[in-house]
Design a protein around this nucleic acid. Structure first.
Lengths: 217, 217
DNA sequence: GACTAAATTAACCGCACGGTTCATTTTGGG
DNA sequence: CCCAAAATGAACCGTGCGGTTAATTTAGTC
């Protein structure tokens, strides 16, 4: 039959670029999951955000949870990289601690999607994070830096002798994280004064102040 | 036809008790939503947790979001009630502040479901909380208490003159909230030492310490 | 240029979900 | 005791979800 040779697509209709597709999917998934949570995120919507199909997501990442794990892993890697680039050499202990607190406060604020992913992961009791074992060894960069600061501070006599780097990290993280994570409910309940530029500058300084004053000898 | 009058249920099969049913639904919904998030929670599962049907949930609460709003409202009311029962009269400013911090730390820790609901609400950008307008006026009990403490502390000269009750509340909430909300990811990343009984006692005291030292004149 | 494996598209599927319909039972007031 | 209204049960429904099947296109290899 003459109609047999119907060609739907004579010219090249698409190019292969698996790495770019994978990276696109990861970015879109990060945004979608951070916005709606794991169960709230729709695979269809992730596909629609970029120029690909739902099929490709399952092709590359297996299932929704595999995709989520990949997003989580990439995001933690990116944060660790930023942390490791913070240079505190040559600073006095108090100045180093101040810089570390300011960095953490600013970095959390600049990465709300990461914060939301961590919130979501906590809702899931860190079940997926625990499955990412290759991160465990390297994600204590911040602690290592604090340990060095604390040692120097104690040696110089400016820090209390019983300051704990781990507790310090917990306190710094708590305020830096809460500032982003709970912004909406806090503002709803108590007003948004603390979340203007001036308010944020104040919180940043008060955070530094409470950390520094709590280690001071 | 003679078979027309088939009676499936001759005897009394159930009792009416709408208030108890509503209360049961609220409790079950709180647990289910706190565990799985709003989109992750299944109405069917909420019904199965107690002795009722999906039908009753929609009958009393309209839809899933209405149920969630009711849960949120009840939970906030319960927390406000606990806060208002905290008695700080007759305490020196520092002692009063210490007691308030300890209370907040302990209360958050004792109410993980409330913490999770707030986390979930933050994921949703506080959209539902904003629709609960009748709470806005009364949920600043904690702030009022802090204002009184700060005034007394400044008058007595033991507090810095520029201490802000709102910032103080933010700091206290940050650490008390983070301690519960981020426990799982923090423990996964940095070990669970801080979440043993001894670790929690240490964190509680360090939280008090950093707050007190940051207001001290 | 034929062959093959990887990459991509289009169409489809079972199913569980939120929500509804219809009928029945219970309660309480007159 | 009767009857309207509230409360409940059972079965159902359309939709959108995560995930799959099968066919088509690309790109490197000989």
């Amino acid at each position: 039959m003459a109609e047999k040779t119907v060609k739907k697509n004579v010219g090249r209709s698409w190019k292969q670029d698996p790495e770019a597709v994978k990276a696109d999917i990861l970015r879109a998934a990060r945004a979608e999951i951070a916005e709606h949570g794991l169960s709230g995120a729709r695979v269809q919507v992730i596909a629609e955000r970029i120029k690909t199909s739902k099929r490709m997501i399952f092709y590359y990442f297996g299932d929704k949870e595999g995709l989520y794990r990949a997003v989580l892993e990439a995001e933690y890697a990116s944060v660790r990289k930023a942390e490791s680039e913070l240079d505190l050499d040559g600073l006095e202990p108090m100045a180093a601690l101040r810089k570390l607190v300011e960095f953490t406060f600013d970095h959390h604020r600049a990465n709300p999607e990461f914060i939301r992913l961590v919130m979501i992961e906590n809702i899931h009791n860190a079940r997926h994070l625990r499955e990412l074992q290759n991160l465990a060894t390297t994600n204590s960069v911040a602690i290592k830096q604090l340990e060095r600061i604390c040692e120097a501070g104690k040696a110089a006599g400016v820090f209390r002798a019983d300051v704990s780097p781990l507790v310090l990290h917990w306190q710094i993280s708590a305020m830096s994280f809460f500032n982003v994570a709970n912004q909406m409910t806090f503002a709803t309940n108590f007003g948004d004064a603390l979340f203007s530029e001036a308010g944020q500058a104040q919180l940043r300084e008060e955070t530094v102040g409470s950390i520094l004053s709590s280690v001071r000898n």
